[in-house]
Write a protein that binds this DNA or RNA. Structure first.
Lengths: 305, 305
DNA sequence: GATTGGCAATAGAGATTAACTATACAACGT
DNA sequence: ACGTTGTATAGTTAATCTCTATTGCCAATC
């Protein structure tokens, strides 16, 4: 029993004439004849009464035809689903973002994606890189926004932008005098750091080798966020390092904080998109990339690939 | 897209492993592999993300698999319907009976059929032979009970029983003296006849050639029935001829009527079943025949074929 | 960094099935 | 009896499905 057989069946039920039904199916009369006979044999049921005068459907035949029509209808739905799903910009996209990007990127990203792909709702999750990677590989996420380096088997990454680091200090801090801060000087101040697991923490520590072994004055704030740290800096609890997108928009509205760039070579992080090599909706990824690049993130430099 | 393809599809969706899914479908891994690829090409949609680690279903893939399961379920229903409909004794049987048999046969027939084939309800229609034949050929009826001769293209008949005719007269009638009535004498009495269209009317006229041209005292009662005529005979309006099944049960309970057989050669009618040559439920016909022969119809002689 | 092992894709051969054309067969109607 | 109409069958060709064998691809391991 094939779908073709069922199509022949309902055609014959409608036409009540083997020749006409065959014509309607674009096959020869013997083809349809054989197919119906095969079906009847397979089901061990007489579906039609053939006579010279005409073709009559049996009682059981009528019931089976009705069911066959249902099958064909449902099968047709498959094609419709496929057509509807063919557009990579239709259907939800599961997006993961690390904690130190989400709050600054998403407010810009979401409306832009919605504008470019209205029928692609975003299901967003913020988490650590490691967790995002896990979810991505498991298929719980489709695309993630992370900082490089990010190497995972089966995962491809595409750099999107570079983002310089900034030093954030309370207004009136001594370093306010300087237009730019040397990285090494970080070890001299009480540096507030994110908890373990945040890649940004590691990157900051990388900037300041002296802070590495915990020999500096830095203080780790487990379970915290850049926003929390920012508030703590404003209260004079110390200084911190922020990515430019988090730091640069601040000073205007906040008289308690001062932002200074690093001295060259300016430390920065490279933000990238990552997805499974096998992920088929590349069009959706392009939209995300474009939306990110279209977002007014302060201080960032697009990476032309 | 075939039902087999869909089976492969749902198997792969369940197993998430080409080899295992193929095994479950009793085919080789390449078979399933190409089938899925073919499906993906046909639908122009990626259903699965293949990677070394494992097979992930895409979003659209999952929706299509769900739909495929629905299709397979509905298709399975076809087999179930066929199995259920395989029994010729299941499902309603559309039975037609001529007016002059129905009232005497059906009260016996119905319980017997119900006993022999409980899941075969009878849809009964009483009518003239010509109307029954029409309905039978059109497929509105499956089997009819008629009097022979009955010749129709595409219709087969099977004699069931012979039924002698009887003369019915009011009690106290002059002919009461005689044990049997010669057919020719019918022309001498006011003979009450059914209306045109009733085959029994023609058969009675056949018995009495003198009545033929309307030269006798007979009176035609259009739109009447044997029961009506019987009541008229009881009131002394005339005599009539009845089939034995209608006549013989009468006298016991009715002091106003007298029944006499004909003289030899006793006129009779041959009752038969008729159905389309193509009608597939021969088992149902056998049940009807057996139920008729099992009915206590007075005076009838089974026809051994 | 080379190697191995697991797994899906591909190639090529063989078998099955589906389609065609031509023709036989059955049943009515003239 | 013959012709017409309509379905079934025969035989052939083409398409397809499925197989085994093999390749290719990753990723994990030594």
């Amino acid at each position: 029993m094939t779908l073709t057989d069922l199509r022949y069946l309902v055609a014959l039920a409608r036409e009540r004439h083997f020749g006409h039904a065959a014509e309607r199916c674009n096959v020869s009369q013997p083809t349809l004849s054989v197919a119906i006979k095969k079906l009847e044999d397979e089901l061990a049921v007489t579906l039609f009464e053939r006579s010279a005068a005409d073709v009559k459907i049996t009682d059981i035949g009528a019931r089976i035809v009705a069911q066959a029509e249902k099958v064909l209808l449902e099968a047709g739905q498959i094609k419709e689903l496929a057509t509807a799903g063919r557009d990579p910009l239709s259907g939800p996209l599961k997006l993961g973002v690390i904690y130190t990007i989400g709050p600054y990127l998403l407010p810009h990203l979401i409306p832009r994606v919605h504008g470019a792909a209205p029928s692609m709702p975003l299901l967003i999750q913020e988490n650590y890189t490691a967790r995002l990677a896990e979810s991505l590989k498991r298929g719980d996420l489709d695309v993630i926004v992370v900082a490089l380096p990010f190497e995972e088997p089966g995962i491809v990454t595409q750099a999107v932008y570079d983002e310089p680091f900034r030093v954030l200090m309370p207004a009136g801090h001594a370093w306010e005098e300087d237009a730019a801060i040397p990285a090494a000087r970080l070890a001299e101040a009480p540096l507030l750091l994110l908890g373990a697991g945040n890649c940004f923490r590691d990157q900051v520590l990388e900037v300041c080798p002296l802070c590495r072994g915990g020999e500096g004055l830095q203080r780790t704030l487990e379970g915290s966020s850049l926003e929390t740290i920012r508030h703590m800096v404003a209260t004079g609890a110390g200084i911190t390092v922020l990515p430019s997108s988090a730091a640069d928009p601040l000073p205007e509205g906040n008289p308690l904080l001062t932002v200074r760039p690093f001295e060259a070579p300016e430390p920065f992080r490279r933000i990238a998109l990552a997805w499974r090599v096998t992920y088929p909706r590349s069009g959706a990824i392009d939209v995300i990339r474009a939306a990110i690049l279209g977002s007014p993130l302060q201080g960032v430099r697009p990476v032309t690939r």
